[in-house]
Computed example of a mutant assay.
Amino acid sequence: MTRSPVKSIWSDYNESLRKRGDLTVWISDAALGFWSAPPRTTRGGQRRYSDLAIELCLTLGVVFKQPLRQTQGFMRSIARLLGVEIAVPGFSTLSRRSNGLILRPSPRANSQAAIHLTVDSTGLKIFGEGEWLEEKHKNMAKRKSWRKLHLGLDLVSGEIICSNLTTDDVGDATALPDLIDQIDGPVDLFLADGAYDGSSTRDLLVKRFGATLEVAIPPPKNAIFSSNMAEEPTPRDYQIAHIKTNGRLAWQKASGYNRRSRIETHPLIDTAYRLPGNE
């Protein structure tokens, strides 16, 4: 009895969905060769693990959303499955080495392709050793420390292309120059929320990426036209006029501003991560 073509198609489709859950792990011989730290040429103790080994373990921990102890166990199981003889960094080593680890930049696939840049920031709470004592002994809670993570996402490639970590008192617009200094390609579109609205931001973008750059930053509800609007309207004046005439939702759709939601739902923004330190 032959199979129905429709059933065959659905069977193949279901199998393709199952294969999405397959886990395949492969570590190249080159990576294994660089697993141990190179000999130290300056005074001090010899490190056991290279930055590459620490970066790989921490990356797996972020991808699978695991604390450091579970990351250590996960990496040990991978080494055992692959049959490779490598020592796995302990969770305390991962915690200590993650502080100040310089990640190797990943070059863009096409450095000349135009970037559609959107930026945002999120707060990161710092957890320390006093947290457990406060909970156990009901001590008076100390003022919590925060950091601010600023990110830039390329909507074309889906890659995070710039980042910066600041104290919580640094505004989004203030952190923008350090972000765009990390971009080495052309930018055609810039999307950001109202925290970046202002002449200083727009002047900086034009100076850095040229007058043809399209900027979509929502002006506040009480925004007014520039003093020279009648003779020489600015792009912001056109945005204000569009919103007054058609409404804010229509402007968001026409300008492509709705695409900015992709950075708000990015795992680094949407998920609260602790800074390197105690679990």
Rank of each mutant, 00 (worst) to 15 (best):
E135K: 11
L189T: 14
P186V: 01
T122G: 08
V25R: 10
T167G: 14
I180L: 00
N99A: 10
P107K: 07
K142T: 06
F64K: 05
S163Y: 07
K253F: 07
K136D: 13
P276L: 05
K144F: 14
R43G: 00
L56P: 10
I161R: 01
E232M: 02
F64A: 09
K207I: 12
K142E: 08
Q46V: 09
A241M: 01
W132F: 05
L32P: 00
Y13I: 05
I86E: 14
L204G: 14
Q252Y: 14
D168T: 03
H242V: 04
L153E: 02
L17R: 12
S92C: 14
H116D: 03
V187N: 01
G247C: 05
R80Q: 13
G90A: 15
A195C: 07
R43W: 02
R208T: 10
I9N: 15
A192C: 15
H242M: 15
D193L: 04
V84A: 14
Q46E: 10
I78A: 12
I9R: 08
S163L: 14
S199E: 08
K207Q: 04
Q112Y: 08
N258G: 13
W10S: 03
T122V: 11
S16R: 13
V25N: 04
T118F: 11
Y49F: 11
G73C: 04
I240T: 01
C57N: 13
P5W: 01
G73I: 04
A53R: 03
T271C: 01
L213R: 10
D270F: 11
E135Y: 05
S92I: 07
D154L: 00
N139T: 11
D188P: 01
W132C: 01
S145V: 04
F127T: 12
R47M: 10
S95P: 06
T42H: 07
N258F: 13
L17P: 07
F91N: 11
A192S: 06
T212W: 03
T265D: 11
I183E: 02
D197V: 05
A31G: 11
V215M: 06
K125D: 04
R3S: 04
M75E: 07
I27G: 12
A114Q: 09
V156H: 03
S28L: 06
W35D: 04
W10Y: 07
P276F: 00
K19I: 06
D29M: 11
P267L: 13
